[in-house]
Design a protein around this nucleic acid. Structure first.
Lengths: 231, 231
DNA sequence: GCAAAAGTGTTTAACATACACCCATGG
DNA sequence: CCATGGGTGTATGTTAAACACTTTTGC
């Protein structure tokens, strides 16, 4: 059961932690795309293929801490939202027995656009145009996307993709990008204003047309209700 | 892989699988209670206290299979619904490092009322009146209850607590027991009839008053949308 | 002034809720 | 025939959606 030196007996179960990190990227005139960072594997199995950032769980490290640590080590990113997604542990998903505890995270677009570490083995990908992926990571990403789209409907996680100050149009764009369809500006405004999650400021964003009021997120309201989970 | 000095045996991470199993139990005139089976621990840590049924994950066993197996071994129950709940893996939750993959399950009331194995170390408890529990199992149950109550609102899992044939009043009682409040029979009927999840039969349940039509669950509609999760 | 986005108002439909009412059965 | 739960009808209020309209800026 006990491993002596990392090699040897693989008849035990190893615990890994990975994270699906979502952010947005503005393209041309279209809606922004949902993007995520991937890491190219340097060793077998699946050497050369892209995979979710992650690593082994440390014996004296909490699960969420492991997610944050491996995230920082591989991508140098700090998420504004982090939540457990699912555990994948089927026997056949890796040559040796690995139980992968997968988290998902949101990163603000301004944070995500700071350059990645000087490493051609880390890169951002459009979720609509993913490369070939190692292990079962493709279906993990599909599931995380499904959760993201679901959760955006009944919680306020969209704010996790925006900086402190934002216009209603910017917030709407987030919902539109995740949902994949345009929303009525008038109805969107009423909905979000009535929810008590926004604090209007006295500042305005001046552009090529009528200036738009800047809003701040009301942190008294939780981003997402996770129920009675220990934090 | 890091390993602190000395302390040979329990120095690695062990993976356990536990299950929160819900069922209903009819009392007197009141609403049925939500009940769950617990197992009394026979060894340390927490010897003598009640705990969730579970066991160690086998090296060549899928996660869901481990949940089913440990369930059958300790309680001899077969669930009608089984879903992953959460992974609890904080460093301090057990003397040695244990990552617990917790599932939650539903058992039909008629199945749950077959007697438990001849063993005074397994028993059903009302969720509103739990004994002292081992580890962090109390908060795990709280979380599972929260998930149950939530999910019953947007999916059809209530059927998992009923036998094949049931009246609308019986189905309504399930919702009332889980939600903890009475529902309008007329509106409940319309809601559930309009959802396309019920197939009316030609049979009736005859009791002390006007006979009630028996319904069957429409298995074309999934109990719960779990998204693109591999099954 | 014109284009375009910000922001307001109004109409409509869908839906949940509340509750009045009739129906069918055992006693 | 009456008590009781099964089952139907209907009025009311809340909410989402669709869209017409006014406001404010850059050019």
């Amino acid at each position: 059961m006990t491993r002596s030196n990392g090699e040897a007996a693989h008849d035990d179960i190893r615990v890994a932690v990975s994270t699906v990190i979502f952010s947005l990227r503005h393209g041309g005139e279209d809606l922004p795309s949902v993007v995520l960072p991937l890491v190219r594997r340097t060793r077998d199995p699946h050497a050369g293929q892209w995979a979710l950032p992650g690593g082994w769980l440390d014996v004296s490290e909490n699960l969420e801490a492991a997610a944050s640590r491996t995230l920082a080590e591989t991508t140098a990113l700090t998420p504004s939202y982090l939540e457990q997604l699912y555990v994948f542990g089927d026997v056949g998903r890796s040559p040796s027995r690995v139980v992968s505890i997968v988290y998902w995270a949101l990163v603000r677009e301004d944070v995500a656009s700071t350059p990645l570490p000087e490493d051609e083995n880390v890169a951002w990908f459009d979720t609509a145009d993913l490369p070939e992926l190692a292990f079962d990571h493709r279906s993990i990403i599909e599931y995380a996307l499904w959760r993201l789209r679901n959760k955006v409907g009944y919680s306020r996680i969209a704010h996790g993709l925006l900086p402190d100050l934002f216009t209603l149009a910017e917030l709407r764009e987030v919902y539109e990008a995740i949902g994949g369809k345009r929303l009525d500006p008038a109805n969107f405004r009423r909905q979000v204003e009535g929810s008590g999650t926004l604090i209007p400021t006295r500042e305005f964003r001046t552009g090529s047309h009528r200036p738009a009021r800047l809003y701040r997120y009301n942190h008294d309201v939780e981003l997402a209700d996770r129920g009675p989970l220990p934090r």
